[in-house]
């Protein structure tokens, strides 16, 4: 299908699962109230995505076409269970704050979508790279959204980073301004929808700018007809 550069470009920008494909909106909108949660869920999704792409790519020649979707779903579910147990063991606070959205990674359309559209048709190395890039693209969008919402909503950044990284990270929290009252709209799902709309708009603006700066394709040389007969 394509070389690695193209895969990276597709995953990170042109076909970004968050901004362009709008896949996985449910965790995207529900969990991104703080940057920490966003990073946690993004990384979990990234790990699952890479793993499922590798496994699906490995078994792609042995799975009959008719039952491929159930097989993919079982692979993904197994991986999600692993990740869930790991987070439960090593980042319990994050486990609690992500809640139901952690097991729900199974139903994230990005993962099954990449398994079906890419991993089941490509070699292992390409599939792994695609998973990495798509996961990174998704995580970046989650982080952007989480950062915007956290700054607007409670005026901080990295609040609760110790849930993800351990006790030392408690000092990472940056206070932009002290607010007595949180801006609830930014922290509730409707605010996530609005912020998401603004992010997509920003991406479209950047795309337009790029398109405007790109030199217009050379106009085809119009074939001028040579007059062969002379008008006398």
């Amino acid at each position: 299908m394509s070389n690695y550069r193209d895969i990276a470009w597709q995953g990170l920008w042109k076909n970004n699962p968050g901004l362009v494909q709008l896949l996985g909106l449910c965790p995207l909108l529900a969990v991104t109230a703080t940057l920490t949660n966003a990073i946690g869920l993004g990384l979990a999704t990234l790990v699952v995505l890479v793993g499922s792409n590798i496994l699906v790519s490995l078994v792609r020649d042995y799975v009959p076409k008719e039952i491929r979707i159930p097989v993919f779903v079982m692979i993904i579910a197994a991986l999600v269970t692993c990740v869930q147990l790991l987070i439960n063991a090593y980042a319990y606070g994050l486990y609690l704050s992500l809640g139901i959205f952690l097991p729900l990674i199974v139903t994230n359309c990005v993962i099954i979508g990449r398994a079906e559209a890419f991993a089941s048709r490509n070699t292992v190395s390409k599939a792994a790279f695609d998973g990495l890039m798509m996961g990174l693209g998704f995580t970046l969008v989650l982080m952007m959204l989480g950062a915007c919402r956290e700054i607007l909503g409670q005026g901080t950044l990295f609040d609760g980073a110790n849930l993800l990284l351990g006790e030392w990270a408690a000092d990472l929290t940056i206070h932009f301004w002290q607010v007595d009252t949180n801006f609830l709209l930014a922290m509730l799902p409707p605010g996530a929808f609005i912020a998401m709309g603004f992010l997509i708009a920003a991406k479209n603006i950047i795309d337009d700018k790029i398109a405007a700066h790109r030199p217009a394709p050379e106009p085809e040389q119009a074939v001028t007809r040579v007059r062969i007969t002379k008008v006398s």
Binding site: T181, L184, L185, A186, L188, P190
Partner: peptide
């Protein structure tokens, strides 16, 4: 409505 939902106290 946005204000009422965001800043119920004020």
């Amino acid at each position: 409505v946005m204000l009422l939902i965001s800043f119920p106290l004020q």
